[in-house]
C-alpha cells in the first residue's frame, strides 16, 4: 500500500502540473488574504454587511482573511483530483497502472491517500502565502491578526478542505470519462452552478434550512467559519461542515472507485 501511494505521488511530481499549481496556490492565498484584509475591515465594526459587504466578528474576519484563497485553492485541488485519474485514462497510463497493481481497489485507495497528502501539502503552501500577507494586512489596518486560538483550528481545517475537494475531483474525474469535460463541468459546477443553487435554495425556508447548508461550498464555508453573506443564513457548525464535506468526498470518490474497479480498461 505504501508503495502504491509513493507511485501515485511520483506520478503527480513527475509532470509540470505540480509546480504550476504550487505557484497558483501560494499567489492565490497571498492575494486574497491581502484583498480580504482590506475589504472586510473597511466595513463598519460588527455590522451585518449593510453596504453589501459581508460582516462578522474579529475571529470571522481573520478566518476569512487567512482562508480567502481557499475558494481558488479548492478549485485547483478539484482540478488536481480530476487529473490524477483523468490523465490516466486520457493517456492510457491506466493500463500500466493496473498491470503493475491488478488489485484495483488498492490503486484507488492509494490515489485517495495521495490526494489527501497533496491537499495538505498545497494547503500548507497556501497558508504560507495567506498568513504572511494576511497577518501583515490585518496589522496594518489595526486589527488583531490572531484574535483567538480558533484561528489555528481554521488553518488546520483548511488543509482538510483542500484534501476533500481533491477527492471530490477524483470522483468527478471518474464519473465524467472525458478529462477536459470533467475539468470544465467540475470547476463550472463547483464555482458557479453550485453556489447559485445554494442561493436558490435559500429563497425558501425548507431549502434555506435543510438543503443549502449541506451543499459542498456552504459546508466548506462552515468549516473555516468565514464571514457570512447574510444574517439570516443557516450554517452548520465547523464539525458539521467537516462531516458534510467528508460525506460528499466519500460519496464521489467512493462511487468513482467502485466504477473504476469494475470497468474494462481498453
Amino acid at each position: 500500500m505504501a508503495s502504491a501511494v509513493r507511485a501515485e505521488l511520483l506520478k503527480f511530481l513527475t509532470t509540470r502540473l505540480w509546480w504550476g499549481m504550487a505557484i497558483a496556490v501560494v499567489v492565490a492565498g497571498a492575494v486574497f488574504a491581502g484583498l480580504f484584509a482590506w475589504v472586510l475591515t473597511s466595513a463598519p465594526e460588527g455590522a451585518g454587511g449593510p453596504g453589501g459587504v459581508p460582516g462578522g466578528d474579529a475571529v470571522q474576519v481573520a478566518n476569512s482573511v487567512y482562508t480567502g484563497g481557499l475558494s481558488v485553492g479548492y478549485l485547483l485541488m478539484l482540478t488536481i483530483g480530476v487529473m490524477q485519474i483523468g490523465s490516466e485514462y486520457r493517456h492510457h497510463t491506466i493500463t500500466s497502472t493496473f498491470l503493475a497493481q491488478p488489485r484495483r481497489a488498492r490503486v484507488m485507495a492509494a490515489k485517495v491517500v495521495a490526494l489527501l497528502v497533496i491537499g495538505v501539502g498545497y494547503g500548507l503552501l497556501s497558508l504560507v502565502g495567506s498568513v504572511v500577507v494576511g497577518a501583515i494586512g490585518l496589522d496594518l489596518v489595526g486589527e488583531d491578526p490572531f484574535p483567538s486560538t480558533e484561528i489555528l483550528r481554521t488553518l488546520a481545517l483548511s488543509l482538510l478542505v483542500l484534501g476533500l475537494w481533491a477527492l471530490i475531483g477524483l470522483g468527478v474525474g471518474i464519473l465524467i470519462p472525458n478529462q477536459v469535460a470533467a475539468l470544465l463541468i467540475g470547476v463550472g459546477v463547483a464555482w458557479i452552478v453550485e453556489p447559485l443553487l445554494g442561493l436558490a435554495f435559500r429563497a425558501f425556508e425548507f431549502g434555506r434550512e435543510h438543503i443549502a447548508p449541506y451543499m459542498p461550498t456552504e459546508a466548506t464555508n462552515a468549516i473555516v467559519n468565514a464571514v457570512e453573506s447574510g444574517p439570516d443564513s443557516v450554517r452548520l457548525s465547523w464539525w458539521g461542515g467537516a462531516l458534510v464535506l467528508t460525506a460528499w468526498a466519500a460519496l464521489l470518490a467512493g462511487v468513482g472507485s467502485l466504477l473504476t474497479v469494475r470497468r474494462d480498461v481498453s
Partner: peptide
C-alpha cells in the same frame, strides 16, 4: 506486457514513467 505504443503521459519523461512503475512494485 507492452500493450500499446501510446500509453505514456506526454509530459512525463520515459524514465519517470518507468520509475512510477518501479515504485509500485518495489
Amino acid at each position: 506486457a507492452a500493450l500499446e505504443a501510446t500509453n505514456f503521459h506526454p509530459g512525463r519523461s520515459g524514465r519517470d514513467h518507468l520509475r512510477v512503475l518501479a515504485a509500485t512494485s518495489g
